Computed example of a mutant assay.
Amino acid sequence: MLIKKRFASEPSEARVTPEDVYLNRRRFLQISALGTGLAASSAHAGLFDFLSGDSDEPAAKPSERKPLDFRSTQTPEGLTLTPESKATSYNNFYEFGTDKTDPMNNSQQLDIEPWTLSVEGEVEKPGKVDVWELMNSAQLEERIYRMRCVEAWSMVIPWVGLELGSFLKRFAPTSRARYVAFETLYDPDQMPGQRNRFVGGGIDYPYVEGLRMDEAMHPLTLLSVGIYGKTLPPQNGAPIRLVVPWKYGFKGIKSIVRIRLVEEMPPTSWNRLAAQEYGFYANVNPEVDHPRWSQASERFIGPGGFFDVTRQPTLPFNGYGDEVASLYRNMDLRKYY
């Protein structure tokens, strides 16, 4: 079921980013590890690539998305969502290529049903979950979250899913579980970016991510199975992905097949590729710049289309500081970026 739950830091629903804008967001810039170099400044980080998203290319035929079973406990006034038909534009999912339309064009044949998610490691009850059965049996919630990309643009998205913490409790984590490691599907036959280093952005696949245990158990942390009331499209990480709203977007690992609870800090894909640019924590922080651009402000992509972009200050922890700042008390957030 879908239950609407609001947090103090939740943005106004009138500022929900339209589906076409979210799903048509520009490609990531190639990182210097690939030898292409990046000519970004604090005022222009990703700007040219962002503008290149205004394309007349026809959208690929979207895969079928299923409505999620839900009930609403609250109907916000003045809520107008973008039509679902606009949710097929483009996305970033390097397993399907780095170009802005590659995920949309190359992911539609991804076999997402059935889908098994394994939970193992430091748990008393390791097991496997049928994700589609989980969708039907779990009490799903809608969460309207800000999403902040490390490249200094932001959106607001209505996710559907369940709290990661409540999900993990089913497997009885042991006292030795200090971190949670995530892994994306590895299937080069279906994911062309995994077959070719240049197509896949130079990442060492499978894509991996991680959270500290207290971050994973925080009620804001979501396992998402849908957006805009329906199941995730493949280019958005179908059928199940991670959403951590106070961290940069690359922490939101897609198409998850394995979760492991571990004692030591696990490796993460972007940190392995460019540790000086992408830290393990990846908390949104306007006072800690990316090595090649400022993080003090961001371009909010609003409901009017690609050129309706508002420059606004970046909020510490992406605006969720009241809920999560205590997780990092006495930590040097410049050192642990």
Score class of each variant (00 low, 15 high):
149 C>F: 14
184 T>V: 13
182 F>W: 08
144 I>F: 04
135 M>D: 13
175 S>I: 06
160 V>S: 14
174 T>I: 05
171 F>R: 01
182 F>M: 09
171 F>L: 01
157 I>K: 09
177 A>V: 01
155 M>L: 14
149 C>H: 12
157 I>L: 11
163 E>A: 05
135 M>Y: 15
146 R>A: 14
154 S>A: 11
142 E>V: 07
170 R>C: 00
149 C>S: 13
182 F>T: 06
160 V>E: 15
145 Y>Q: 13
177 A>S: 10
152 A>W: 10
153 W>V: 09
180 V>N: 02
157 I>D: 06
180 V>D: 02
177 A>E: 01
159 W>F: 15
187 D>C: 13
144 I>Q: 02
155 M>K: 11
174 T>Y: 03
152 A>C: 13
158 P>R: 08
154 S>M: 06
139 Q>M: 12
156 V>E: 02
175 S>E: 14
141 E>I: 06
188 P>I: 00
180 V>H: 06
183 E>D: 06
144 I>C: 03
165 G>D: 08
153 W>T: 10
167 F>P: 03
174 T>K: 01
152 A>T: 14
153 W>G: 04
180 V>K: 03
188 P>M: 04
150 V>K: 14
147 M>C: 02
165 G>C: 11
143 R>T: 11
150 V>L: 15
165 G>A: 11
176 R>W: 00
165 G>W: 03
174 T>S: 04
174 T>H: 04
160 V>I: 15
152 A>D: 11
159 W>P: 12
174 T>Q: 03
181 A>M: 01
155 M>N: 11
147 M>F: 01
177 A>Q: 04
186 Y>H: 12
171 F>S: 02
180 V>L: 05
144 I>P: 00
147 M>T: 02
151 E>A: 11
143 R>S: 10
169 K>Y: 12
139 Q>R: 15
158 P>D: 07
163 E>Y: 02
182 F>Y: 12
183 E>Y: 05
162 L>V: 07
140 L>Y: 12
166 S>Q: 12
168 L>T: 01
188 P>F: 02
176 R>V: 00
140 L>M: 13
168 L>G: 00
183 E>M: 09
140 L>I: 08
171 F>N: 00
146 R>C: 13
135 M>V: 15
183 E>P: 07
160 V>A: 14
165 G>I: 04
171 F>M: 02
159 W>E: 11
154 S>V: 03
149 C>W: 10
164 L>C: 08
164 L>H: 09
